[in-house]
């Protein structure tokens, strides 16, 4: 790491030794004796590459990565699963949203090593071989996407919404989709898609279709 004196004109070396406060506890720098019974304890692994086994879209994925690699980066950079996007990389925008054991999670803010043994679903795992997931179809049908970069995250969040509330109210939908940001401004139609997807058994919507002749005027 570059010396803080160079970067910011203030030395942080002392601080780094003493200020590791956070998470659920304070930092530990002392080598003092503890009253907690000394025990073999769990194994310390890393910081170099370690084997990490993930279950993604029902398939087993064996990787060798550093413990610091996030779930998002593990899939995008090591498994070529690039459907979910990196946008804010800090758990603010939702483009990286995956479903981990049935609940949505920001994969940018999840370590890959922490989700071993869990069922991970990405946007790639939603569509069938020849058919889209009803949520994906609804997004297409109402044009709930533009540049499409937020879309995979929104699609995953909407799938999770409807798995939790199959008959979601607009209020429930808004709340469950509040963790995602779109910059093109497709929100109105995403809401429309969510409401449409919950009634997939209903009649097809407006006359818009791909490629066919004789599309009716809207």
């Amino acid at each position: 790491m570059s010396d803080k004196e160079d970067r910011f004109g203030v030395s942080r070396r002392d601080f780094l030794k003493s200020a590791g406060v956070g998470g659920l506890a304070t930092a530990v720098t002392s080598a003092g004796v503890t009253d907690v019974e000394a025990q073999a304890g769990p194994r310390v692994i890393g910081p170099g590459d370690v084997p990490v086994s993930l279950t993604v879209n029902g398939k087993r994925l064996e990787l060798r990565i550093e413990p610091r690699v996030t779930l998002l980066d593990a899939l995008r950079n090591r498994a070529d699963l690039t459907g979910n996007k990196r946008v804010c990389d800090r758990g603010s925008c939702g483009a990286c949203t995956m479903i981990v054991d049935g609940r949505t999670a920001y994969s940018c803010s999840t370590l890959a090593i922490d989700v071993q043994g869990k069922q991970i679903r990405t946007v790639e795992g939603l569509a069938g071989a020849n058919t889209l997931h009803p949520v994906q179809q609804a997004f297409c049908d109402v044009d709930a996407l533009m540049c499409g970069f937020c879309t995979p995250g929104f699609v995953v969040a909407t799938v999770a919404l409807l798995e939790k509330y199959p008959n979601a109210t607009p209020e429930q939908a808004r709340r469950e989709l509040d963790g995602n940001i779109c910059r093109c401004g497709t929100f109105v139609r995403i809401m429309e898609a969510a409401m449409k997807a919950k009634t997939v058994a209903g009649p097809p919507t407006r006359q818009a279709r791909w490629g066919d002749m004789g599309v009716a005027r809207g």
Partner: peptide, 17 residues
């Protein structure tokens, strides 16, 4: 920064680790 990782399984392991 790269870090080593411990997967603790009980409270005491956390404190020890």
């Amino acid at each position: 920064k790269a870090f080593a990782y411990v997967n603790a399984t009980n409270e005491r392991e956390v404190v020890a680790a």
